[in-house]
Amino acid sequence: MRDLSVSFATRQGVVRAVDGLSLDVAAREVVGIVGESGSGKSVAMYSMLGLVRDANATISGSVVFEGREILGLPDKEMQPLRGGQIGMIFQDPMTALTPVFSVGWQIVEQIRQHTDMTKGQAKARAIELLAEVGIPDARRRVDSFPHEFSGGMRQRVVIAMALSCNPRLLIADEPTTALDVTTQAQILELMGRLRDTHGSSIVIITHDMGVIAEMADRVTVMYAGRPVESGPEVDVVRAPRHPYTWGLLGAVPRLGERSERLATIPGNVMSPLEVPEGCAFAPRCEYAMAQCAQRPALTGTGHQHACWLGEEQRVAIRSDGKGAP
């Protein structure tokens, strides 16, 4: 993905939901996109698949999938990719399935859309998939309806569906946000296992640094639609460079550390209409300086960051114990 930008024309002005996002995903790689709510993570993925259906949206940039430009392809040509080559897992499993069809029917529908399997074969495959994602008694449950499953089980169904056609790429949009903590761990573990068995690459969208540390090989941190830091997971999590990443990491509470209150980043994500010309994070940044009125570019090789702070300044700040961990 190169320089993807998505903007929406609204009554109040143009909203740049995604602004110059670039991303590479290698085979079998897990790439994480992190950021607060409203930072443009999901919109980027949806627009990549042509799922942003808003007459007011303008999408530019380039998305190359297996050597082919797919951004702006007509629906007819996108359909074989969606669900076939690229699977998608959604945030809220409670509403992601059509309530009036059995889960088996919905999986079979997708398989039959992309392959020549007969109904019987597709059904057998659906049972196989449900068993694979850990749904007990899959043979019987295949005829159950979505409302007969718990949230975690429904997310497993959604994952089974996304994997049904052995996609090359799996996009997971906050797959664990709507689930409780123990279920989250199970779903993450399941996704990790499936990556190994199916050999799909995964793009995982989250606002939880814990999920990134658990799953991702590489990470891109987004703020207000812009990438602010990007690099291998180890580097970004162990040696973060952008003050926003410091804040995100600092906001993960840890066991054994007592503090008066949870660490937060001061302020909220600003209204997308008010994003400043310069560094988007500057208004909330403790270390903002005059230079931040100009927009910093994403620089560096491997581990990239978009911040005017120099190496020495960063080291000085971090050795003060600020910008934990």
């Binding site: 698949l49 799922l51 629906d75 996108m78 359909q79 074989p80 990719l81 969606r82 669900g83 076939g84 699977g87 998608m88 959604f90 809220d92 509403t95 992601a96 399935l97 059509t98 309530p99 069809f101 529908e109 997708q110 859309q113 992309h114 959604v158 569906m161 996304a162």
Partner: peptide
């Protein structure tokens, strides 16, 4: 949301409207 899922499954708009 389920219509978004149906689109992500690669179904045609017509099928999404008529079935789901």
């Amino acid at each position: 949301d389920y219509v978004r899922t149906a689109r992500a499954k690669g179904l045609s708009e017509r099928r999404i409207l008529m079935r789901h």
